[in-house]
Amino acid sequence: MLEVSNLTKRFGGVIAVNEVSFEVEKGEIIGLIGPNGAGKSTLVNLISGFYLPDSGKIRFLGEDITKKKMHERAKMGIARTFQNPRLISNMTAIMNVMYAVLGSERGSKLSLVEAYGEAAYYLDIFDMLKKRDVLVADLPIYELRLLELARALALKPKILLIDEAMAGLNPAEAERVSKLINRIREEFDLTIIWIEHVLKIIMRSVERILVMHYGKLIADDTPEKVVRMPEVVEAYIGEEVV
C-alpha cells in the first residue's frame, strides 16, 4: 500500500532521514520508535508531503507520490496528526473537524451543513460531541489529542500517520487513547503508522515495529524480536525498553 524506498532528507549538514526503505501492507499497524532526533517526525513529514525528499521515492496505492503536494496526498487518503496538537484555537471543536470533512475527497460536494453533520459523527466516536461548541483554546490536552484523531479520521484516510498520540497524557488517558486507536483501526479498516515515545503501550498495540536511529532504519520486525536486537538496545541505552 505504502512503499518508501531510499528516502533521504538533509537539513543543512544534518541527514535527518538517511536511505530509509520499507513497505506497509493494507491493514497493518506499525509502530515507529527511536530516540529523540532519530528522524521519525521528519519521516512522517516526508510521507505527508510537508517536506519534499532530497532523493528516494514514495509510492502510495501503486502511484508515485514523491512530487505530489501535501493537499493532494491528503485527498488521496494520507492523514496525519501533529506531535503538538495543531488545531485552530479560535474555532470550535466541531469546526476543526469540519474542514477535514470538507478537505476529504468526497468533501468537495458537501455543503457546510452536511459537513457539520458528518463532523458531529466523528466527534461522537471520540465522545467529544458534547464539547462541539467549545473553543479549542479552552480544551485540555487529552481532548486536544482526541480532537486531532477525530480530525484525521474525518479525512476518511486510508493510512493514518500518528505523530505521538500520548505525549502529555497520564497513564489512564494514554490507555484510553490506545484503545480508541485500535477501535478506529478495526471500524474504519485503517492502516496506521504510529510514532510513540511511550514504548510500553505501543509494544502491546502494534504488530510490527520500525526503529530509527540517526536517520537510519535499524530494525523492522515484531515487537518481541525488536527489543532483543543489540542495535536497538544500544540506541536506547539509558532509556528503558519495555
Binding site: 510537508f50 493537499h71 485527498k75 474555532m91 468533501g107
Partner: peptide, 25 residues
C-alpha cells in the same frame, strides 16, 4: 458563509494545517 469562506478561514489561521487536511491553499 459558504464552504469556501470556511476554508478561507482555515487558511487564514494555519496554512499548513489547511494543506495537511486537503485544502488547496
Amino acid at each position: 458563509r459558504s464552504r469556501y469562506g470556511f476554508m478561507m478561514g482555515v487558511i487564514n489561521e494555519d496554512e499548513e494545517v489547511a494543506l495537511s487536511y486537503g485544502i488547496d491553499v
